[in-house]
């Protein structure tokens, strides 16, 4: 028994070390100067510096090759704005739609639901060229509105399918009981159905937030520098005078903080929501 316990702990440590190593490495890099990072042979010991973070936050970077303006904080703000708005819009549209798909049988219902899902597995590059042409015609190119719209391809199917499973799990009888007690259909939906599916909605919202946050290619093609999120903004550190590894590392640390915090906070719901909602046919 004792040996099994030790072996298990060892295996867990190995797995953890394997998965956490890149993150720890990046965290360490973010406290080093570019010269220390690129030193040969590499050294385990260094004098930690906050220079990278200061450069990111102040927006100015002094390098040997000259001064560089960084819009990282603006990119971070863009990420927050785009992801939050996209998820909010997707919840607004997706939760009632999921309810309809779960509760009512209607013509082409399954086909529509499946089409929504198929948006998830269509390669983005396939739609990007026509989309960017349409966006230029419509004047949606390089606007927050246009990006939020395109982000629905990421968020809406996810929310629709996870939340649908949750609504299907909940017995409609409770809503009926509430309606027969003298309440309207809309109140039964908002007061009974949505709260009962709450964990599923939270899980779906979080997951689609992470997917939206991590998206790269839509914003790269459809938006210019001042609308781009951190994923695209990180490209700015690849400069003519070299790659600013320290700043990239610091930028990565800053940009995974919000999703990390959210995921840690809502871990319980995530696991529960996904296992109950999406997996169950």
């Amino acid at each position: 028994m004792a040996i099994a316990k030790i072996l298990r702990a060892l295996a867990l440590s190995l797995v953890l070390a394997f998965f956490l190593f890149p993150i720890v490495w990046i965290l360490l890099m973010s406290f080093q100067t570019n010269e220390e990072i690129l030193r040969l042979p590499p050294s385990t010991f260094f004098r930690p510096t906050l220079g990278n973070y200061i450069a990111l936050i102040s927006g100015h970077l002094e390098t040997a090759a000259g001064e560089l303006d960084i819009t990282f904080l603006h990119n971070l703000w863009n990420s927050i704005l785009l992801s939050t708005s996209s998820v909010a819009l997707a919840l607004l549209l997706g939760v009632p739609a999921a309810y309809a798909f779960a509760r009512f049988r209607f013509r082409l219902g399954e086909d529509i639901a499946f089409t929504m899902l198929s948006f998830r597995f269509a390669p983005p590059l396939l739609v990007l060229l026509p989309l960017s042409l349409y966006f230029q015609d419509l004047g949606l190119n390089d606007t927050y509105l246009g990006l939020i719209w395109v982000y629905q391809l990421i968020c809406l199917p996810l929310i629709l399918w996870i939340v649908r499973g949750y609504f299907e799990d909940a017995s409609p009888d409770i809503e009926y009981a509430y309606r027969i007690d003298g309440h309207s259909w809309w109140r039964a939906f908002t007061r009974i159905a949505v709260p009962l599916a709450g964990p599923g909605i939270a899980a779906a919202g979080l997951l689609s937030f992470i997917f939206a946050w991590n998206n790269f290619v839509f914003a790269l093609i459809l938006a210019s520098a001042d609308k781009q999120p951190v994923t695209v903004g990180a490209l700015a550190f690849v400069t003519a005078s070299g790659i600013q590894y320290g700043q990239i590392a610091a930028a990565i640390v800053l940009s995974i903080l919000p999703t990390l915090a959210l995921a840690l906070y809502a871990q319980r719901w995530l696991v529960e929501g996904l296992s109950l909602g999406a997996v169950k046919g």
Binding site: D173, I174, Y176, A177, R179, I180, S184, I192, L196
Partner: peptide
């Protein structure tokens, strides 16, 4: 009429009690 306007009370086979 909507269920709310029918003035009927019902006991459900699946109970349908409000969980909270």
């Amino acid at each position: 009429l909507a269920p709310a306007a029918r003035r009927v009370a019902m006991a459900f086979e699946g109970y349908a009690l409000y969980p909270p």
